[in-house]
Amino acid sequence: MAPRSTAQKRLLKEYQQLARDAPPGIVAGPVSEDDLFKWECLLEGPPDTPYENGVFPATLSFPKDYPLSPPSLKFDPPLLHPNIYADGTVCISILHPSGEDPNQYERPEERWSPVQSIEKILLSVMSMLAEPNPESGANIDACKLWRDNRAEYNSQIKKHVRESLGL
């Protein structure tokens, strides 16, 4: 099927790029060739973190005006992490639409711009898994656990990893 809109053209290009040489630990692609706006991806847990050895499925949903607006990333099943909401949606600055930040919290260059790409988003999420940012917490319980009781946090995640692998 021939790509029509800019968004579809760009998504197709990015898909081709990712298929050609994907970074290690990342697999991503559209759910079906007909709908390029829904992607599935698998993220490997970064090594030397409690997420190690885990493989986490997530869905990327692109808006119709992509790449002007950022996509959203959602882990399914949800993942325990300070920057991931309880329903699995990832809260990370690269996924926030650009423009004047009302809180003056994130620098404009950290936020979404069309220069960014799916590959960069996924790499950022991987590094976010390795190093949570407790200052912009999305899951208060996870934040508290991460800050106050790291051992319990780690063991819960390991349990989740084992469960996800069906062990």
Partner: peptide, 26 residues
């Protein structure tokens, strides 16, 4: 890799981002 841009794309992005100053984000 981010050196080049289409005029149409840039204008659309500027319209979309709706910032007060027309500057490169990077």
């Amino acid at each position: 890799s981010i050196k080049y841009i289409h005029q149409e794309c840039l204008l659309e992005w500027l319209r979309h981002s709706n910032k007060s100053s027309e500057k490169c984000d990077i």
